[in-house]
Design a protein around this nucleic acid. Structure first.
Lengths: 192, 192
DNA sequence: TTCATTTATTGAACTTGTTCAATGTTTTGA
DNA sequence: TCAAAACATTGAACAAGTTCAATAAATGAA
């Protein structure tokens, strides 16, 4: 199912049929079982992926064994550890399927091939990286300026769909709080 | 002084003399007095800047009037509100000189001109945006997983130079804590 | 120089969020 | 279908970080 991928690309830039085909052919489809990993800490992230089905979490495990979610990726989202992928260094992150999932994967070599052969691909990833950076910038500001209560309310409003599909443990790991405290926030909100 | 800019660009990609010249000519130099602003909340950020002298802070003011620093930019750093610049929407941020400073500014129009006329410029900003995104991703993980003590120690180690030039009020606003609490952290560290 | 402003420190009371342990519920996999 | 595992909630004690007010030191502008 590259139809979703094509739509996603055309959403960012315009490409000819030929260009689209030759780019999309660089991707391999992969099915990932629930709870299975696309990436583990210590591995070098050798792919960039586009989710066509299911849901992933990209997370860190800190020195005390607690997990922090960098982001969730559902259908139509891109997924990678850009740090490890770009610098070819061991990743600090885990990427795990939270549901039965499917991704289209492109290797670093093929991606660089595309940069060289299809000039607009450079623009595509320039624009996409800008957008993800803008999102992260907004999240950074929110994390610095808002209380956990407000971040939780914002999360539900911004990602109503993810809210349905995630457990509170996962949402708490994204908000940067313990799941017990999230439970208390939920009670407080519910009692209003 | 575009020499610093040229070095910065060549650090990311290779360009011919001609390409460098025609790109660098798109920048205008501007001097910014200490405490003066390059951007204020509500304005649309119409520039991307390269700092050749001095030091800036890019910060948010939240609903309670507290300031949070998104990043500092000293010599050899790029500076903009990428959100406002890209989407041409009113900025939520302030950009202020903390010292007598100088920047080279490029407008959105001229930057897009460069994208069209100098193909490698697309790669330049793709690579640069990737790098800033990687930095922010690391900071996000650190903010989610580390205590204020550790973030302060990391800051000193990572930016010894900025540490010298900044007040504790500014550093606290970057770490996301009150300056009083930073003072208590400093005492604790000093007493060891 | 001097006076005002900004910066840094401190303590006490307070708020936000964590930790731990217990309990009940839901989901899942064999 | 049934036992195990994961999930959600709660309370109590605790730790991390804030707020406010007071004081002293450093800086800056006239």
């Amino acid at each position: 199912m590259t139809e979703l991928l094509i739509q996603n690309i055309l959403n960012h830039i315009t490409l000819s049929k030929k260009e689209i085909d030759s780019f999309c052919n660089l991707f391999d489809q992969k099915e990932v079982q629930k709870k299975h990993f696309l990436l583990r800490e210590g591995q070098i992230c050798k792919f960039e992926g586009f989710v066509t089905k299911g849901l992933f979490r990209v997370y860190n495990i800190d020195n005390n064994g607690f997990e922090q979610v960098l982001y969730f990726a559902q259908e139509n989202w891109w997924i990678t550890d850009i740090d490890s992928f770009t610098n070819e260094t061991p990743s600090q992150l885990y990427i795990q399927a939270l549901e039965e999932s499917e991704v289209l994967l492109i290797s670093k070599k093929d991606k660089e091939l595309a940069y060289d052969n299809i000039p607009k691909i450079e623009k595509l990833f320039r624009v996409m990286t800008q957008k993800t950076h803008i999102s992260l910038q907004r999240r950074m500001i929110d994390n610095l300026s808002k209380t956990a209560d407000q971040r939780y309310i914002d999360f539900i409003e911004k990602y109503p769909n993810l809210f349905q599909r995630l457990t509170n443990v996962q949402i708490a790991a994204y908000l940067g709080i313990s799941h017990e405290f999230l439970s208390k926030i939920r009670r407080k909100i519910a009692s209003k």
